[in-house]
Amino acid sequence: MGATDNTLGIQPKAQKKLSLICFSGDFDKLVATFTLATGAAAVGYEVNIFFTFWGLDAIKKKQGRAFVGKGFLPKLFGFFMGGLRSAPVSRLNFCGISPKIFRYMMRKNNVATLEELVEAAKVLGINLYACEMAMHILGLETSDFIHEVKGVLGVATFLELSEGGRTIFI
């Protein structure tokens, strides 16, 4: 994978560090993940996000429903999981209507939408990593992810990266 595309050349001072484990692919929890991540990066934290299981949805290149993955079952899962734009809310999803309502309410109240938060995360140079094991199960390859994903990690490397900072599981 290419290096993080930090278009503004922001160099976080790396004195404080926040590492997030993004396990959930739910819309509301992804909003929480990216709100914390961008807020922390903006006030000078070094931020790492480790995407695993359902969380991998957030960094897929294809943002809607698509047969992503290698093999029949992974493709089927890939389709039903969808991507960032198909993320359901964790409660009261109402067959996928709620995320659309939430996006509308967020825009109406001038709150950053999930897509805007993800774009901000890329601009702020937040380090995005994918979980090797979850990728293996879901038949995903590095080429299935957005190019800002900095690398594929296992537990040991994540622990090394997050050492000395705070870690949050969402």
């Binding site: 961008t38 807020g39 903006a42 709150v111 950053a112 901000a120 702020l124």
Partner: peptide, 12 residues
Amino acid sequence: EHCPMTFVKTKI
């Protein structure tokens, strides 16, 4: 703007 975009926009 609301949190976190207040910080994000200032920082950018």
